[in-house]
């Protein structure tokens, strides 16, 4: 594979469900070795996009190329290079953990001895060694999710597509899954990752695309995205008591969007500006207020997400 060739290339993808346009003229390129984050509110079309890439859905318009070749339902050579961890857990209820991983691996790898190694590695990867002989029914929700992951990655694909793989997983397992993904990525695997956990995405993803209503509304690295929005840092100052006049003065600072006092803490939300913290502290000093701890948080991906996709609840889907 030429290293500069896009692993995934989508041009003008359109997918309609009747009247509803689930994916609306979406284009994207994913380079080899990237961890590409796909973000978006519920119903924004992430899963639909993935299913189109995988040819599980036919689409109305657009081109999809994987590894430089057009993807078709019968592109078995391409399918061999892809691993998928679907949003819904999909495993055989009657088979044990090990048999499940082996069955899915066998869809790609024929050689038994090779498969045994791969299955061992996948089970290690998700830390299910102790549960090898369990049936899925006996696994807790989090363990089941981990099995779901093992089934998708056992055949060592070059491109892994993960649709919310860490839902319902405890912090320890989540940590091991995330570091596992980092390890796979370090070995050269390209990853498409969707999640509603912003910290995960911020930690893993080299590039992020935010989708809404089937369209790409923003994309770039986490820092680029943060730079795109108007929101700046959040300043918190321990002030004890504070009179209304001083508070008004803080509010009238040029980059301050809102300021309030809550349980002895002054919380100020700033727009992006050069010296917001100094300005706020200046006002306090001028008014003879002494202060304790001072905290300044840069905007998070969560802020970016909310600002770009709006704060209104998404239940129209």
């Amino acid at each position: 594979m030429a290293s500069n060739e896009a692993v995934v290339r989508i041009r003008n993808l359109v997918k309609r469900y009747g009247e509803l346009v689930a994916v609306d003229h979406l284009s994207l390129d994913i380079a080899p070795g990237e961890v590409f984050g796909l973000l978006g509110p519920n119903g924004s079309g992430k899963t639909t996009t993935i299913n189109c890439i995988l040819q599980l859905l036919s689409y109305d318009h657009g081109e999809i190329e994987l590894f430089g070749q057009p993807m078709r339902p019968t592109s078995y050579q391409l399918k061999r290079r892809i691993g998928v961890v679907p949003q819904e857990v999909a495993v055989f209820d009657e088979l044990t953990v090990r048999e499940n991983v082996d069955s899915f691996c066998a869809l790609y790898v024929r050689d038994r001895a090779r498969r045994r190694e791969l299955v061992d590695a996948a089970i290690d990867f998700v830390g299910l060694q102790k549960f090898e002989d369990f049936r899925p029914k006996k696994l807790s929700g989090g363990l089941l999710r981990r099995l779901n992951i093992a089934c998708g990655i056992a055949h060592r694909p070059e491109l892994i597509i993960m649709d919310e793989p860490t839902v319902a997983v405890d912090p320890q397992s989540r940590e091991s899954i995330l570091s596992g993904i980092e390890r796979l990525n370090a070995e050269g695997t390209t990853v498409i990752y969707t999640s509603h956990y912003m910290e995960e995405v911020e930690r893993l993803c080299s590039r992020i695309m935010i989708m809404d209503h089937g369209r790409s509304v923003a994309s770039g690295t986490a820092d680029e995205l943060k730079g795109m929005i108007g929101t700046g840092e959040k300043v918190s100052v321990e002030v004890g008591e504070m009179d209304e006049a001083t508070l008004e003065r803080v509010r009238s600072l040029p980059h301050v969007r809102s300021a309030e006092v809550d349980a002895g803490m002054l919380r100020v939300q700033c727009a992006s500006g050069a010296h917001n913290l100094a300005d706020v502290l200046g006002v306090l000093a001028e008014n003879g207020l002494s202060y304790g701890r001072v905290l300044s948080e840069p905007p998070t991906l969560n802020d970016v997400f909310l600002e770009i996709t709006g704060r209104a609840l998404r239940d129209e889907a």
Partner: peptide, 20 residues
């Protein structure tokens, strides 16, 4: 039925196989 993508996520998942 388990192999049919129409019938559920397990079928969809198996439709991704590198086998006709």
């Amino acid at each position: 039925r388990r192999l049919l993508p129409t019938a559920g996520p397990l079928g969809a998942r198996q439709a991704l196989a590198a086998v006709p």
